[in-house]
């Protein structure tokens, strides 16, 4: 059986004034129908670039997919013509962006912005049909008084409502895949929870696969089935959500989980951090990219690139020493 989406050995680089840099290197994962894949990592680790590559929305001409396959229902998206791509965007694969404040056009009513999707993908629909569908979609994502909201402009809506509008636009055509790029980062916690529940509910309803990009491990634990942890453009660890949270194998994942503040700790306890900085994309070390921050680093880490290997079943880790380190005694 072919997966809904399969990304194989994706490599993306950007042309900059200081030369060519590789933002995503050898990233592979797959997404099944109705499942949620989380991509986690800190800013600049390549998670958004990965998402943009799937829709071929990398900034042109700077960004380029150098290598790899992106198979959507078994067909490589990279081979499609740009016109086929227009058919996929918004119809088969949709995307929600991080900033609901700026991701909507300020001078168009939100109704026009959602109806535009129907206009593009179902040109045979009449104006009334489009309006009816827009109202239905608004209702589906829980926007109160949808017929009135259609006429409103983004600045008249709250942040949570705007993100709901964004979700409505993304789900307007009931896509097969929804890519949510930090959809809740700009929202406050209560709205965040609502939006997460909403995405989960709609996923059940429509049966779509969701790629959830975030740096918030709490969010990941809540919504994801499988998780890809990225570090400096590479996959550090890939596992289902239970394995990852129960027995993280990569020192980076460990550090991430360790840095989450815990309720049971005494107030004012110093938060755990991962020492050091992410190496610059221009100055990537040989070997393992986490070497300068890893407490288990050895000579071999500095010369050999750790392959992404199975630790147990589908639990993959790219650490040369993962089998030697005893996490339990820590």
């Amino acid at each position: 059986m072919t997966s809904l989406l399969e990304v194989k050995n994706l490599k993306v680089s950007f042309e900059t004034e200081q030369g060519r840099v590789t933002a995503v290197d050898d990233v592979s994962f797959s997404l099944e129908k109705g499942k949620t894949l989380g991509i986690v990592g800190e800013s600049g680790c390549g998670k958004s670039v990965t998402a943009m590559s799937i829709l071929r929305l990398l900034p042109k001409p700077a960004g380029n997919i150098d290598n790899g396959e992106i198979l959507f229902n078994g067909k490589n998206i990279r081979d499609l013509s740009i016109h086929d791509m227009f058919q996929i965007r918004g119809r088969k694969i949709s995307m929600i962006f991080q900033e609901p404040m700026t991701a909507l056009n300020p001078v168009k009513s939100v109704g026009k912005q959602i109806m535009e999707v129907y206009e593009l993908h179902f040109p045979e629909m009449s104006k009334e049909d489009r309006k009816r569908s827009a109202i239905e979609t608004f209702e589906m994502v829980g926007i109160p008084a949808p017929d009135r909201r259609l006429r409103e402009y983004p600045h008249q809506l709250s942040g949570g409502l705007r993100q709901r509008v964004m979700i409505a636009i993304a789900l307007a055509c009931k896509p097969d895949i929804l890519i949510a790029d930090e959809p809740t980062t700009a929202l406050d916690v209560t709205i965040q929870a609502q939006i997460l529940d909403l995405i989960k509910d709609l996923q059940k309803e429509i049966g779509m696969g969701v790629i959830f990009i975030t740096h918030d491990l709490g969010v990941v634990a809540q919504v994801c089935d499988e998780i890809v942890v990225m570090y400096a453009g590479r996959i550090a660890e890939r596992a289902n959500v239970f394995d990852l949270f129960k027995s993280p194998q990569h020192p980076y994942t460990h550090g991430l989980l360790g840095s989450i503040p815990r309720l049971e700790l005494a107030p004012k306890t110093k938060l755990q951090t991962i020492e050091g900085m992410v190496p610059s994309l221009f100055d990537m070390p040989q070997g393992c990219r986490f070497q300068n921050r890893c407490e288990f680093v050895q000579e071999v880490c500095k010369s050999k690139i750790p392959p992404l290997e199975a630790f147990q079943g589908s639990h993959l880790v790219s650490c040369l020493r993962s089998k030697e380190i005893e996490w339990s005694d820590r």
Partner: peptide, 29 residues
């Protein structure tokens, strides 16, 4: 380079259409 152009492209608009339908009016202000 605004985010809403990226949204427009993600909806399936071609770049010239995104410019014409979304960026133009904002730029005329």
């Amino acid at each position: 380079s605004a985010d809403y152009i990226r949204t427009a492209l993600a909806k399936g608009l071609s770049f010239p259409k995104a410019v014409w339908k979304h960026a133009m009016r904002n730029s005329l202000i």
